[in-house]
Design a protein around this nucleic acid. Structure first.
Lengths: 114, 114
DNA sequence: CATTCATATGTTCATGTGTTCATATATATT
DNA sequence: AATATATATGAACACATGAACATATGAATG
């Protein structure tokens, strides 16, 4: 079967993964990153930011949560470099910072929806 | 750019995700599944099982952890349907139960390795 | 059937995590 | 400068979680 560039790259990664003793440094990095995704509020924030950047207040309203709770989670997501922020006057606008975020969540959607 | 079946399917999922109000039921499922991956021991177990099935004792030895700790995590992974078990005499052999497991971890490897 | 080996499970404990509440900071407006 | 609005942050609390330890279960073997 013909594969596109993206899938070929993925196959290379799989080959790299296979037949190796688990590298503790890498697996720790992986687990830590999975942890960031492992919270409903953070997933909902990322989901909300999929199509457009949004300010803190609007995210909080859309998700029916307090500004503080959202702000705390935005900090977590920003520290993990999954989102970035930009100031515009009184507002701070947040947006997805990494192309992989969609792919990672998408892959999990495929998994849970079967 | 030409895309293979797999990538085309992924694109469809992306389209489905975009521009929607986050569905709390789905995002909860996603977060819960990410949580399962969000532990170094569990990632290392999955990693170990990538190429072949293994019994509990061998996994514990390979990862230098107690049999109890491994068994507990195997239960977690089994309940999440990420691995399956098979008895052979005194031994319980575990193996990856879902094709997506590799893809999910692989996608995260791509992310953290940049 | 008693023993041994492999695995599973219940409990406990220390640690981590997410939200709330109160408050601080930053920017704009009057 | 005083005030209002938007966001960030620190502390505290409730809750979740992973490993250790002790023990139970299950299967083979004498």
């Amino acid at each position: 079967m013909d594969m596109c560039e993206s899938c070929q790259y993925n196959m290379q990664v799989i080959e790299k993964i296979k037949n190796q003793v688990p590298d503790n440094e890498l697996t720790t990095k992986l687990a830590d990153m999975f942890k960031i995704f492992g919270d409903n509020t953070r997933i909902r924030i990322l989901w909300t930011l999929f199509d457009k950047e949004m300010c803190v207040y609007d995210i909080a309203e859309k998700l029916s949560m307090s500004q503080s709770a959202i702000s705390h989670q935005l900090k977590t997501l920003r520290q993990a470099r999954l989102i970035k922020s930009r100031r515009d006057g009184k507002n701070a606008f947040y947006s997805i910072d990494d192309d992989h975020v969609k792919k990672i969540i998408e892959q999990m959607v495929i998994h849970v929806e079967e």
